[in-house]
């Protein structure tokens, strides 16, 4: 018997010939994520008078297969900011864990040992609404700080040729408590606008949102109800026309009073009448 451990469990040389050990040698380049696998589609958001509304559907696609239909792509950071992820879901999960760490570190540093006095929301609430009062002591990272950090993080990963395959929206308030909305993509490109959309939404939802809030001044006139209606309208259009979307979505409203996140929203009042008039796709023979 061959006493060398590296020979154990291998096909016998005298029967199958010498084993090709080069298979175990890891030479050549390391391949990091070069393409997304399980993906989320659009995230859309719009500013209004005292905050930001942001939404994303609950679908994670595997290619064109609607693989996971209950994936939450909006994430609350320190009870004051919402981060919306489009793109690769595993990278989103990595960022989610990373942001958890960041939030914990930040909470230690700004420990003012205040009584949290967290009002426990009754679980009998039919919708999964959770209103969170800011548990964010003065001085901890606000939305603008978080966006800057994510931008540096994504840009660094791009420079390592190992990008985090996400397009991210950050919604919250800045240092002077004004509504803040900004995006950062897998290259670390960052910008801000009164309304923003990632993925297909940039083509389908952005023009609709611009009709209502082309400028910061326009956005500052919108009420919360108007902003929510615009976002819901956009989610509907996205479901009509984006084949990687879902009618179940999450929507969050960020204001001075905190984050109101609903994760089980259903698209209402759909009308597919327009589909009758569409020809030239699929198996139709007209």
């Amino acid at each position: 018997m061959d006493h060398r451990p590296q020979a154990w469990g291998r096909p016998r040389d005298d029967v199958y010939g010498a084993y090709d050990g080069s298979y175990f040698q890891n030479s050549g380049p390391k391949f990091a994520t070069q393409s997304p696998v399980v993906t989320g589609t659009s995230v859309i958001a719009i500013k209004f008078k005292d905050g930001v509304v942001i939404a994303a559907d609950n679908l994670a696609s595997y290619g064109s297969l609607a693989r996971f239909t209950n994936v939450k792509r909006l994430r609350v950071f320190l009870d004051t900011t919402v981060v919306g992820f489009g793109g690769d879901v595993s990278d989103m999960q990595y960022l989610d864990r990373h942001l958890n760490e960041l939030a914990i570190d930040e909470s230690y540093e700004n420990d003012t040992t205040e009584t949290a006095a967290a009002t426990t929301t009754s679980s009998s609430d039919p919708s999964s609404t959770s209103t969170q009062t800011p548990n964010n002591p003065a001085g901890s990272l606000n939305a603008a700080n978080l966006h800057k950090y994510l931008q540096k993080l994504l840009y660094r990963r791009r420079n390592d040729f190992d990008p985090l395959w996400n397009h991210i929206l950050v919604a919250g308030l800045d240092a002077s408590s004004k509504p803040f909305l900004a995006s950062v993509d897998l290259r670390g490109t960052a910008f801000t606008s009164p309304s923003l959309a990632t993925g297909f939404g940039a083509a389908l939802a952005q023009p609709i949102m611009r009709r209502y809030a082309a400028t910061e001044e326009d956005a500052a006139k919108l009420t919360r109800e108007q902003a929510v209606d615009i976002i819901k309208e956009c989610m509907k259009v996205l479901f009509y026309r984006d084949a990687r979307s879902l009618d179940k979505y999450s929507i969050a409203v960020v204001t001075k009073d905190g984050v109101e996140l609903k994760e089980e929203e259903q698209l209402e009042k759909q009308s597919w009448a327009f589909a009758e008039r569409i020809h030239g796709y699929g198996t139709q023979t007209v």
């Binding site: 540093e109 700004n110 001085g139 990272l141 603008a144 700080n145 800057k148 950090y149 540096k152 240092a175």
Partner: peptide, 12 residues
């Protein structure tokens, strides 16, 4: 300042 865009907390 570069990574977070704010004044560093003095305690940190």
């Amino acid at each position: 300042r570069l990574t977070y865009g704010r004044n560093m907390p003095v305690r940190g």
